[in-house]
Amino acid sequence: MPRDTLIRQINQIQDEILILGSMVEQATLSAVQALKNRDTHLAHEIFEQDQVINEKRFAIENAIITLMATQQPMARDLRGMTAMLEVNTELERMGDYAKGIAKVVTRIGEGEVVIPIQEIEKMAEIAVSMLHRALGAFISENSSQALAIPKEDDQVDELFNQAYRKIIEAMIANPNLIDHTNLMLWVIHNLERLADRVTNICERTVFSATGELFEIDGMDEDDANV
């Protein structure tokens, strides 16, 4: 089969996207860990790691543009490459959510605060698992898997609502802690948005595999239930 060069280079970029994906997964889990243990040192490591994520994102973007310019992809190849550009950007934004959580850790320092950590840990676990499988489906162009994964977002939304109620109750009970407790809304918002962005990756997977462009569950940027 001809086009060995093209296929080899596409595979290389896919590998890089998977690496970027695991960096984001790791950053997300670490950020929640840092929050749980009030570990500002780990939070600073996440800031540094975010720099690496950003650089990697640009390197991948450059590689895709170069491949497009030199190999003139068509049809499935073209769809796959534009989808890689989108997924690449989504991953970088997800990295920013992890960084945002790490920032909350440094802002609360050792101050008193109510952290609904059970819900937060569970949200992170589900969101990261969704991301991991969504990237697998993306690389293998498995559109039926890609169509199924976004349904799990309902669990993340449910946990978001539980955590949201706890945070509001804590604010009412302890108005003097509002400043710090309010930051917990950022944390759960970031995790909820991260799971939403998994849906975007799944949409690109369906596009890459079939050429069909549509929103999988009708949820868009503005529907985040804050």
Binding site: M1, P2, R3, L6, P73, M74, A75, R76, D77, L78, R79, T210, G211
Partner: peptide, 19 residues
């Protein structure tokens, strides 16, 4: 035709996998 051809043979030809 160049973004989502319906026929597999068209796809193979325009993506350079024909032959």
């Amino acid at each position: 035709i160049f973004t989502r051809p319906k026929d597999k043979r068209t796809e193979d030809y325009i993506t350079g996998r024909f032959g």
